[in-house]
Design a protein around this nucleic acid. Structure first.
Lengths: 265, 265
DNA sequence: CAGTGGTCTAGACCACGTG
DNA sequence: ACGTGGTCTAGACCACTGC
């Protein structure tokens, strides 16, 4: 059943179809409220790049007209996307696509924090940047076929001149063509901001698994500590729109003057 | 300005006053929407124990009548409390006060997870339970005067018979009168469930600071590892309603077969 | 002043759980 | 059959932003 018969003026935009199914194969409920369908359409738009990070999406009234629903329904869809930090509402101005070119977003993904005071001078040194065929574990984490090309990146992050973070980063090769060590060296913004601007890949969410481990020889040398020194080991999988994994990152953090902060809600 | 003049039937419940202030001393905006005022009232009710954990709060229509606002306004207040996990909506049944007597809530606060498979047989052994005058750092964390009585609790948690977690817990003495080692030993449920049922203290949120450290002698012996073994050190401050700190917990986790899981949103 | 998101209301209907 | 929360609508008015 199309909704448009209730509205005299049809747009040429795709019209949302009411879905009131309660029963489906398997018997599991599959009922999708209108605002969830709108949310899915907005997500598609974001994924397709119809609206780029930092840009405004159309106003609520405009979206309501486009999708042939009430403003309240659009609002509820946007509310959820804003709660998930995909969109950002600004009263009087509009609703904007979240971007990693912002301190706020950055701290959502950078949890290592100085014990005292505010962050300090930070620097990144690229150790390595090469393409290779994905080992089985990497392929599995990134939803690739083992043997697909992946990009492997290693770097050291320093604060106040002292090396603090070791990152070992794996990316699907197909999505990051042209990423080289030179390009990274000349890059000043956070890595995720670069991914977003240069490769159209927006990281939206991440899962982390954290352990305490003893530094091995390679880690000890790079972090300027002795072998066996306790390190925070953080394994992260980052996702874009639609929960598609786009990065596997293995980090080792020195936590003498820093800690990993977290909030349990 | 009272709202009640618009409604012929006044209840004897406190009536919400509209607050449309836009200017205040200092010029900073201090405008509070109606639904935020309702939310504050509900929070007070929770804090006072008007509705206990696990119980249902009154229906939306009933609250709307009590506070002399529309159902939609009550709904928005409840929406926020549900988003913060203080309330739990169940379609067809009602809205319930969150309780730690539930697996879901428990895993919000217990982040250490087995690397494989599902949790296993777990046990708690109380090492120590004593009252003393609060050291300065503890007092500061719990918003007490240094010298106020605090309760100090130490325990070992084991999974599959192997000691895995060391906890050093500090509680404000005034809120936990009668808590003894015997009582703890006979307790089978999670600690926060006990706090809730026996002392009316609901933990609602927590902040954690995580480091990797080397095991000292005491830790090494209790966890059955060698001195210097890497441990995950987790310092947690837990809060009740109104962001009042009610627990300081220092944990040391063995992470050979377990990891701390986290989601970045 | 016009346009945006934010609040608030009132009412209709739906889905769910329980008698 | 009834009461609960869930969805959807339409419309009024408020607060913030920028021209």
């Amino acid at each position: 059943m199309l909704r448009s018969f209730m509205y005299p003026y049809m747009s040429d935009q795709p019209t949302v179809e009411r879905n009131t199914d309660t029963e489906r194969v398997g018997g599991s409920a599959a009922f999708s409220p209108l605002y969830q369908q709108i949310k899915a359409l907005l997500l598609q738009g974001l994924d397709r790049g119809e609206w780029k990070p930092g840009e405004a999406i159309p106003s609520e009234l405009e979206l309501a007209a486009r999708f042939q629903v009430s403003q309240g329904t659009v609002r509820k869809a946007i509310d959820e996307l804003a709660a998930e930090n995909l969109l950002l509402r600004r009263q009087g101005k509009g609703t904007f696509v979240a971007t990693h070119h912002e301190a706020k977003v950055r701290f959502r993904f950078l949890r290592l924090t100085p014990d005292d005071a505010e962050p300090s001078a930070s620097g990144s040194r690229i150790l390595d940047c090469r393409r290779l065929r994905a080992p089985a574990d990497i392929a599995a984490a990134l939803d690739l076929r083992s043997g697909d090309t992946v990009l492997n990146l290693r770097r050291v992050l320093s604060f106040n001149e002292s090396p603090t973070i070791l990152d070992d980063i794996w990316l699907p090769g197909a999505s990051f063509k042209g990423l080289t060590a030179e390009l990274l060296a000349s890059n000043r913004s956070p890595l995720y901001a670069l991914f977003e601007s240069e490769y159209g890949v927006s990281m939206v969410r991440a899962d982390e698994k954290i352990k305490a481990v003893a530094a091995n020889e390679a880690q000890a040398e790079l972090l300027e500590v002795s072998v066996g020194h306790p390190l925070l080991q953080v394994e992260r999988v980052s996702f874009t729109y639609g929960d598609r994994p786009m990065e596997l990152r293995r980090g080792a953090y020195l936590t003498e003057r820093f800690h990993y902060r977290n909030s349990l809600n």
